[in-house]
Design a protein around this nucleic acid. Structure first.
Length: 98
DNA sequence: CAATTGACGAATC
DNA sequence: CGATTCGCCAATT
């Protein structure tokens, strides 16, 4: 199950971001937007997955505290541009079921 | 096994 | 816009 999420997250191309809802839909659980986040949260620090490319439907970072700062930094490192605290919509990944 | 818990989402206020 | 409410449902305790 979580592995399904990991796979999906892993296929997000650099320079793009996906929403939890997209991931959930892609794996076949459109109603599991929350579960996606809950799962990613448990990822090990050393994870290789681009979890930072996953944001909420508003294209905004959901984490609070230093986490938000961290994610934003990682995203910017991926050529993602921010508009204020929001990610440029142009970066939204077109979730294509592989 | 029952209750609680969310990196969410959409609708409402 | 931002704050709240309700819905969704696997995972964890």
């Amino acid at each position: 199950m979580q592995q399904r999420i990991w796979q999906t997250v892993a296929m997000i191309p650099t320079g793009k971001v996906a929403t939890y809802g997209q991931i959930a839909s892609l794996i076949g659980f459109p109603a599991h937007s929350r579960f996606v986040g809950t799962t990613l949260r448990q990822l090990p620090k050393n994870t290789k997955l681009p979890w930072f490319r996953v944001v909420n439907s508003s294209l905004r970072i959901s984490l609070r505290g230093g986490g938000e700062k961290l994610q934003r930094r990682l995203l910017e490192a991926d050529n993602i541009t921010f508009i204020g605290e929001r990610i440029a919509k142009a970066h939204q990944w077109e979730a294509t079921a592989s």
